[in-house]
């Protein structure tokens, strides 16, 4: 199992603060994003949108290629625009 956390605006949009998920078959964070996007509706808006969300695995910022292992904590944050 992994723990998935949603922060700030994402938490409000998705009406979910955290959930536990089975990590079996998930290769990396991109795989998890696809899984979440496929839930459709708001999930598709958030995870399938043009703006990427920020991701962290065990409190470290990562890109989508980062591996996910059993027991990990994955955090998603609102996209950062500008810069």
């Amino acid at each position: 199992m992994i723990k998935v956390l949603y922060f700030a605006r994402l938490r409000e949009q998705l009406e979910t603060a955290s959930e536990e998920m089975d990590a079996a078959g998930l290769e990396n964070v991109n795989g998890l994003v696809t899984l979440l996007k496929d839930r459709g509706g708001t999930w598709d808006d958030v995870f399938g949108g043009a703006q990427p969300v920020l991701m962290a695995v065990n409190q470290e910022m990562v890109d989508g290629n980062a591996a996910i292992n059993d027991g990990d904590e994955v955090g998603f944050f609102p996209p950062v625009t500008g810069g």
Partner: peptide, 12 residues
Amino acid sequence: EEALELLLNLAK
């Protein structure tokens, strides 16, 4: 508030 929440959640 959003930036702070993000930062604090990344601090170990």
